[in-house]
Structure formats: C-alpha cells, structure tokens
Design a protein around this nucleic acid. Sequence first.
DNA 1: CTGAAAGCGCTTACAG
DNA 2: CTGAAAGCGCTTACAG
Lengths: 344, 344
Amino acid sequence: MTLQTHNRPNLVAVAKAAGVSRSTVSRVINDDPNVNAATRERVWSAIHTLDYQPNRVARGLASGRTQVLGLVIPQGVATLFSDPYFAILIQGISTACSRLDYSVMLWLAEPDHERRTIHQVLHGGLIDGVIVSSMLADDPIIAALVERRMPCVLVGRHPDHPEISTVDTDNLSGARAAVTHLLRLGRRRVATITGPQNMIAGADRCAGYSLALRDAGFSADPALIVESDFTEAGGYRAMQQLLPHHPDAVFAASDLMALGALRALQHGGLRVPEDVAVIGFDDIAAAALADPPLTSVRQSIQQLGHSAVELLLTQLDGSRITGPEHRVFPPTLVVRRSCGGDPA
Amino acid sequence: MTLQTHNRPNLVAVAKAAGVSRSTVSRVINDDPNVNAATRERVWSAIHTLDYQPNRVARGLASGRTQVLGLVIPQGVATLFSDPYFAILIQGISTACSRLDYSVMLWLAEPDHERRTIHQVLHGGLIDGVIVSSMLADDPIIAALVERRMPCVLVGRHPDHPEISTVDTDNLSGARAAVTHLLRLGRRRVATITGPQNMIAGADRCAGYSLALRDAGFSADPALIVESDFTEAGGYRAMQQLLPHHPDAVFAASDLMALGALRALQHGGLRVPEDVAVIGFDDIAAAALADPPLTSVRQSIQQLGHSAVELLLTQLDGSRITGPEHRVFPPTLVVRRSCGGDPA
DNA sequence: CTGAAAGCGCTTACAG
DNA sequence: CTGAAAGCGCTTACAG
C-alpha cells in the first residue's frame, strides 16, 4: 500500500500512448541517439500529454545512478553552525547541483550518530557520490569513504589523503598576506587568534602567520598566539588573554573571532586601529558592517561549493579516468579601516 | 555497469548464509513479529557477518517508502541566507531526522528553477514527504503540494491552507509583547522596522506592533512604520529613514534588522537606549553580543524543526488518520540593555 | 532504429 | 512460521 493514491503515469503508460515499447521511451528520456526522429517526437508528445516524470528511485535501482549527491558536514560543536560559512557552502553546492539536475542529501554528522551516518552515506545506495566538508585532521569518515570506494570530494585539503580530490582556499597564503600587510604598516607586536589546531584550515592559517613573521625576519612570540574555536565568543576570550601582552595588531583566523576581538578591545578601552589593528578571515557580510569595518581575507565559499560539485561529477562521469585533482583558490585581502594604514 | 565495483551483499546473500528465503530475511529486517526466534537469530548473525545493509533505493521502490524527507527552503533573495534562521532550521530538522533514521534531501528553491524543483520534489519518488519553510503568502509550491497530495508540513502558518499541518512561532504575540514592553517603559514614539509584508511572519509581527499600540490606546503613526527585508543592511537603511521622525524606540522584526538599526543610530550619534530603545526578534547569538546587548523576542527555531519532523512522520505513519495540526509556540521576551528600563 | 526479456534489490500478498 | 512468486518502475545488453 503506497501513501500516494492517485497513480502517476509510468513508462508503460507513455509507451502505450506513443505506440512504442518501454525500451524506446527509455531511450528517448535518456537522450539515446539511436531513435528515429519521428518516433522521438511522438514519445515526447506523449510524455508531455501525460505529464510523465521518470521515477528516480526506479531509475536509480536499475542504473545504479540516483542523480543525488551527498553532503556531509561535521557538525562538531553546534556553535560551528553560527558561522555563515556552512550556510553559504550549502547554498553553493545546492545551486550547482540543481543547475545540473542533481539533488542533494544532507547529513550533519553528529558525533554520537557518527557510525550510523557513515552507514547511511556509504551503504544506502541513495547517493552517487559525496562531498565532505572535512575540517578535522582525523575525521574517520574519510577512511571509510576511501575503503568503500565511494566517489567523493573534500572541501578543504587533507594532507593524509592525496588520492581524494579536494577544493580549498589557499589558507596559508591568505594568512601570510594578512600578516605581511600588518608588518608593512609598521606593526611590530602582531598577535594571532587561531582556529582549533586539529582543523586543517586552522593549522594552515596559523602556519601562514608564522611564515609571514619569518619572511620579515621576526620570530614569533608564543605569548602572542592564542588558540580559539572559530566563534565570536571564543575570539572575545582569546583577545582578553592577549591584552596583557600588549599586541599592536591581531590576525584572527576567522571574521567571527575577529568580531569577538573587536568587542574585547572596545571593552578594554583600546582603539581600533590606532592602538590595535585587526584583520579577520572569510570576509563574511558582517565584516564590512563592523565598527570599524573589518579588513579581511576574502575567500569565495560559493566557488568552493560549485567547484566541489564539478569535480565530483567529472568523477562520476567516468568517461575519462582522471586522477585526483586538487583545486586551490587564492584568497584576496580586502583592506578596510580596522587595520589602519590608508585604505584608499 | 555500475560505478561501485565490489559487490555489496544483498538479500540473497544473507538468505543463503542463513539458510532461509529472502522473504524471511526481509521480515527480520523489518521487524515482522511472524518469525521464529531461532530463525531470527540466525538471520541477524548472517547480517552481521556479511555486514549487510539493505539498499534503500530498492526498498523504496518496492515499498513506496524511502525514509527520506524533503526540505524546501525558498531562497528568494540570496541575502536571506545570511540570517542564521535557516542554518538553525536545517540543523533542527536534520537532527530530528537522523535520530529517527530518516535522511533529508534539501532544495533551495531558486525562483528560476522553481518549476524544476517542484517537479523533483513532487514526482521524483525520492521522498516520502516534505517540510516547506514557506514564507511567502503566495508561494506556488504549496498549491502544487496539495494537489499532488504530497504529505507535508509547513514551517510558518499559512492562512490560505488550513488543511496543511504547520508549526509556527506566535509571531503576533511576540511582537505585541515587545512593543507593550516599550510602552510600559514610557516610550511614546515607538517605531517599527517590519519584514517584507508579503511574508507571513513579516505581516504577523507588524500586526503585533499595531495591536500593542491599540491595546495601550495609541494610534499608529504611519511615518514610524518602515518596511524592510530582514537583512542588516535593510535595517540600517530603514533606521535612517526613521531618524527624521524622532522615534524614541524601535521594534525591529528581526535581530539582523535590529543590529542594522543599532549601527544607524550609532552613526547618527544617538545613544541606545537613552535616546532610542531597540528590540529585535529571534534572539540569535549575535543579539546578546551586540553593544548594547539587544533585547529580543526569542523563538526556538530548533524546536520548530523538531516539531515539523514529528508532525510529518505522524502523517506518514498513517496508522491513525489525523487531521491537520497547527502547533504554535509562544516566544519569550529576553530583556537586555538595548531597551532601557532596568534589566534585573 | 526497435522490441522482448532479464535484471536492479527489495516487499508483500498468497498459500501452505 | 515460512517460501515461491509477482511486482515496484526503470535500464540495458541482446537480437533483429
């Protein structure tokens, strides 16, 4: 007993209406060139008359392809979701998919349901491939994906798995450019508020900070490096920790943390950028609206999403066997008032 | 030719291993009581040995149930997505689903792909039911859903369709409470920045504003009502429009707009709450972090999500035929510094 | 260019 | 309590 009572037309109905076999209707739907033009006409008109839509589930079972992509986001701390990053990523992926007539299935990987999620993703037969926004260096799902040979693309590079295609922002260069900018403006006690160091983006942005200092011939002062968690509240606390060490600039590894730092500085009675220059990362909408407007390293999260879909679909296409591809997008420094200097 | 080369065990494999028929294995998997306890044992152990996972696509085709729910979000203006509302809603729904062993398929309804999306949602056979975050009063997808008899639940009440189950925050009461609070504190020129009036929540919150004024014996001054778009930038512009009319308080229909208003007031050299009191709606994380902390009408978006899933699943369950249900959750006013008075 | 037939991996009356 | 068989709605070699 199905819930949906009135019957949708199926292949047989169309075949009957067009006076052909099911095979032929199937060929027409799938754009098989081996169909007589006139026949094709008749079939299409039957399809339109009946308002026929192929059942994707049946098609999926028969062909092994469902035209559905999975998207796995490691929810981790619930607070992570307060960052617009994920909303935009979802948006970018969803848009790219619907343009290509794919649908997307979403899993927010809660730690406690981890195993069940992995099972659903891998063994359900529901999806053709999966995009994983993998942040953690040791995410167990990745190994499972590889073992199962599930076609997949990671958003965010993953040093341990060069065999998987990835898309990523060049976090290291972005961070390096930001810190170099601060040093060029004459700041000498440049601090950083990092993301969690078990997240690759967090580690990369921190590495960029260190490199920029080294480039300029400085050595990093450990007291000026505070690890935080990519949240506003975390940025606030980190800044409070930094204040006693009198930084004259701060590079925060995310805008949310930079906004938190701004708030802490304000509460501490320090002026931005006069006393302390601040630069964030991501260039979320709130950055331009901050007071003062926040200088930030802009990455296009939308582009990451689009690109991930593209890579996954080429993999699924399979017409040409391709090795893994690693796309790295250069971020750009968007200079606003918070870092001082003279933003043109 | 399927992409996944190594074969997963299927029902037949399990049946063979356990020395029973496919039917029996199927019964065991589906918890059919009509199975001998010993047989059940043997089957389960075969399942575990082979690490068998039922193919959901096949199951979906055979049973007409895929254990997948759809979630449709009318993207409308892309900026809408800058509001944490949707991220949290997605989160709430996703969490509830995975707890119940359902998966969720996501569609961001872009206007230009509208028809295609509707088709996918309705006719793909991929989902058992759908949750629609319907904001627009005249969203065409709703009529299509009804006509197709697709089980569905709306997040956000919809006056034109009482036959569809809904979950909603009591927007009117929330707004009314906020404005009443401002009036009690002695404010006399209370303005409002509304959401789009073709969105039901926008209209409801505006109605709440008007009612509160009426309750207190005031009549609304049209110059103190400005329609905006639920974004920060929109709130900023709306506040600028209001300034010449010298409001002494503003109720913004969303926190994002309230934050924009705060920014406009600051730029205009006005003090909050001394010169102008401000109250927002939603109580997003940023509200408590604003300067001054923002008084806001708190709704639990997570709860809306959970509740929507629950309602949809009872509908799908179908063991008892139920009429539509309309769950309305009362929001609560969270008083902080931005509205003046003396927040305990 | 077209059709008959097998098959994708399940579920579900129907018999027993 | 169990199995043989039909069926869900497609795709896809295989013949012709």
